Amino acid sequence: MQLFNKKLFVIPKPKSHPAIRLFCFPFAGGGINTYTSWLDRLYDNVELVLVQPPGRGSRLQEAPHASMDSLVYELMQYAEFITDVPYLLFGHSLGSRVAYELCYQLKANNMRLPECLIASGSKAPHILTDRRCIHDLPREAFVNELKQLNGTPQEVLDNDDLMDLLLPLLRSDFKIADSYKATAVRMPFPIVVFHGEEDFEIKPEHLMGWQDLSDFDSPIINFPGEHFFINDSKDAVISQVLLVLNELLSPMRGYSKA
């Protein structure tokens, strides 16, 4: 097995012989703390891998990626590790699109693909919307946009020194979100879509677009909450992830072809 970067792939509880790995990708400006509490809910044969791109956590001093190509290029350096055993990808918001682009690159290189992708809180990556770009707004306007998204704690937004530290990462992540448009390719694995019922910025057609990217049915599962329902409805989200894992770990998977 290829060695992996322990800062890029944080494994809180390594398994000697996992039946499946669950890779979790952060939202724009987010880190691994979103998923660390999942560990105690997972099955013993599931290895949790938290993806930590530069600019956050233990990689805070590293320059963040400013393009999807750069970010996925770093991930692809460890493609043998990612594909070593059966795996499931989970991404929220921008993380969903990063996960899809990783699949696209793995497929192009004829490498093992995931058993499933859970795309949470995101439009389909090949669909353009009229949402305006925010990454290059002046500081005050950019911070106001962050406030509207309700994903950054108020105490962080009110701390100028902390915001000075985080703004390069936030601007870089949102630049990726603003500029990335995927090449639509149908994948030979299911894509399960998670959505916040009050996340009105993501339209039904944006969600249904994920069906264009899979040979299987792409169910849309709704949760109470806005865009960051992943935090507000954490228990329900984890329960649904466990249901997906149940299907993947059982001899007969319960997904049907589209």
Results as ranks from 00 to 15, higher is better:
residue 97 R to H: 03
residue 97 R to T: 01
residue 99 A to K: 00
residue 99 A to T: 00
residue 101 E to V: 05
residue 102 L to K: 02
residue 104 Y to K: 03
residue 105 Q to S: 11
residue 107 K to Q: 13
residue 107 K to G: 07
residue 108 A to I: 08
residue 111 M to Q: 12
residue 111 M to W: 08
residue 113 L to C: 09
residue 113 L to P: 07
residue 115 E to S: 14
residue 116 C to S: 03
residue 116 C to Y: 00
residue 116 C to L: 04
residue 118 I to N: 01
residue 119 A to I: 03
residue 121 G to Q: 06
residue 122 S to P: 05
residue 122 S to T: 04
residue 123 K to N: 03
residue 123 K to R: 13
residue 125 P to E: 03
residue 126 H to A: 02
residue 127 I to P: 00
residue 128 L to D: 11
residue 129 T to Y: 09
residue 129 T to R: 10
residue 131 R to K: 13
residue 131 R to W: 11
residue 132 R to V: 15
residue 132 R to I: 15
residue 133 C to W: 14
residue 133 C to I: 12
residue 133 C to G: 11
residue 134 I to S: 14
residue 135 H to L: 12
residue 136 D to F: 13
residue 138 P to N: 14
residue 139 R to W: 15
residue 142 F to R: 08
residue 143 V to H: 14
residue 146 L to N: 06
residue 147 K to T: 12
residue 150 N to L: 11
residue 155 E to M: 12
residue 157 L to Y: 09
residue 157 L to S: 07
residue 157 L to R: 08
residue 160 D to R: 13
residue 161 D to Y: 10
residue 162 L to K: 13
residue 164 D to P: 03
residue 164 D to I: 09
residue 169 L to H: 06
residue 169 L to F: 07
residue 170 L to G: 06
residue 172 S to T: 08
residue 173 D to C: 06
residue 176 I to A: 04
residue 176 I to N: 02
residue 176 I to K: 04
residue 178 D to V: 11
residue 178 D to M: 12
residue 178 D to Q: 13
residue 179 S to P: 10
residue 180 Y to T: 08
residue 182 A to L: 01
residue 182 A to T: 00
residue 184 A to H: 03
residue 184 A to Y: 01
residue 185 V to G: 02
residue 185 V to I: 11
residue 186 R to H: 06
residue 187 M to R: 05
residue 190 P to G: 04
residue 190 P to Q: 04
residue 194 F to A: 02
residue 195 H to T: 03
residue 195 H to M: 02
residue 196 G to I: 04
residue 196 G to F: 05
residue 199 D to E: 12
residue 199 D to N: 13
residue 201 E to Y: 09
residue 203 K to M: 14
residue 203 K to W: 10
residue 204 P to M: 02
residue 206 H to K: 03
residue 210 W to C: 01
residue 211 Q to N: 05
residue 211 Q to A: 04
residue 211 Q to Y: 01
residue 211 Q to K: 04
residue 213 L to T: 00
residue 214 S to V: 01
residue 214 S to W: 00
residue 217 D to E: 09
residue 220 I to W: 00
residue 222 N to V: 06
residue 223 F to L: 10
residue 223 F to S: 06
residue 225 G to H: 08
residue 225 G to I: 09
